[in-house]
Design a protein around this nucleic acid. Structure first.
Lengths: 244, 244
DNA sequence: CGCTCATTTGACGCATGTCAACGCGCGTGG
DNA sequence: CCACGCGCGTTGACATGCGTCAAATGAGCG
């Protein structure tokens, strides 16, 4: 579907083209809006960064100096209340953006779940470049609109769904996304731990655990191990997720 | 602060200029990014619409044919679950946008709280126009990023705050916004009813009511009447809102 | 002045959070 | 290679905050 990635362009000097040519997420990331020429301009301001498992990529309240594009690994975005209560705002999968939502400062922290690689763009320079790359600006607007729609779905989950419905929704969403990415087996890999899931779903680790057990006992899922879920009854799962 | 609104331009034929010139929200709306010339292009695709109190402007799942800019009145954005449970995603105040967040369809319904006026833009034509009006595209990206940050703050509220903290946060936010808009009295007008507040805060009308009473008894607010709150202890309110 | 609808107040039960113990898998070191 | 220990996940027991149901109060309007 993106077979032109390996075309040879011998006449051009391509400072970092190798970096993007080999990119695993080029087809899904924001960059997919750009042709090779435009991509080169974008690549001219990028730095590739790696973080260890658990590392903080940026912190809530920091000056938003960079925008990131995740190329490998998983990231959690979290907000923390004074007394330590934590809400996970979202999980970022390869190809996703970090640092788009700001109000003059990062509004949440970003932490690596496992080892992570990402492309780092100086925010100001990227915003300047946006004026010269209209397709990229359009793409970012699309991404922002999608993230907004996701955020609103999550508000419905947090405000009005029971823990059972929350867990089912969570699994259902991950499954749908995996299918959309071409996966064929009815299974879900969970890169994050139970604590992260609980903090994402606005509940507790114990309730998440009990709910997994209940879904298993009811024959909707099987737990190959704690981080791999096999879906046995996709329709049943969806019905629970939708509150039917 | 926007004193140039009445300048006379006799040589130009201005099909709908009067509409924008008189606009109450021109300084805050997305249009503020545009000069008069650009504004005219935008105005060429706009239709002014009015809705009665309670009317539905668009429905969750509808084809997103329009994007709106609220010029007068208040709107609630709501998502509803199969069994009738409702979550209000946000309240829109004059100058705000409707219909930005979509996934191929409107992801929530928009309903008028009281009589409403808005500017309606055919979505496709607006998106086309965006390519010719880069400042508008930039502005929309900014708006989307802001709304995303707000949505994330709301996730924290729904997932991790107690009802007391939710109500305090709600009042505190409205108060801050009113101050930002130049209000000097320490009061808040609530255009929406208790049911809407409850559905916004992920709780029930009874709990909202009890919480108002508690805040009153604790000397933090006074209720001039059900829809007008006087703030007596702003700092105390903020501390509760932040979970201190 | 009385009706209606929104809000407030009251009583009660349950779902879910809290606290606590247990199990299991994995990595480490002997 | 095995034993141990640690961290994560699971299960259990219990308490309580909040949702549910029900009734009373109050404000707005004809």
């Amino acid at each position: 579907m993106q077979g032109s990635a390996q075309t040879i362009s011998p006449l051009r000097i391509v400072p970092r083209a190798g970096l993007c040519d080999a990119c695993q997420v080029r087809g899904v990331a924001a960059c997919s809006a750009l042709d090779n020429n435009e991509l080169q301009r974008l690549a001219s301001i990028v730095t590739e960064k790696k973080y260890d498992s658990g590392a903080t990529i940026f912190e809530q309240g920091d000056e938003p100096a960079y925008i990131f594009n995740l190329t490998s690994g998983h990231v959690r975005l979290a907000k923390t209340l004074a007394n330590g209560r934590r809400q996970i705002i979202g999980f970022v999968y390869p190809g996703g953006m970090l640092g788009l939502a700001t109000h003059g400062a990062y509004v949440c922290s970003a932490e690596a779940i496992g080892p992570v690689k990402l492309c780092r763009f100086p925010r100001e320079r990227l915003l300047d470049l946006l004026e010269e790359l209209p397709p990229l600006k359009t793409r970012l607007l699309d991404i922002a609109a999608d993230e907004l729609a996701d955020a609103q779905e999550q508000m419905l989950l947090l405000g009005r769904k029971t823990p059972l419905e929350r867990v089912a929704s969570f699994l259902w969403r991950l499954y749908q996304e995996a299918v959309r990415c071409g996966q064929t087996e009815p299974s879900i890999d969970l890169p994050m731990g139970r604590t992260d899931i609980a903090d994402y779903l606005g509940t507790t680790i114990e309730t998440v655990s009990r709910t997994f057990t209940r879904l298993r006992n009811d024959g909707l899922i099987r737990l190959e191990h704690a981080n791999k879920v096999i879906i046995l009854d996709a329709q049943g799962l969806e019905e629970i997720a939708e509150g039917l």
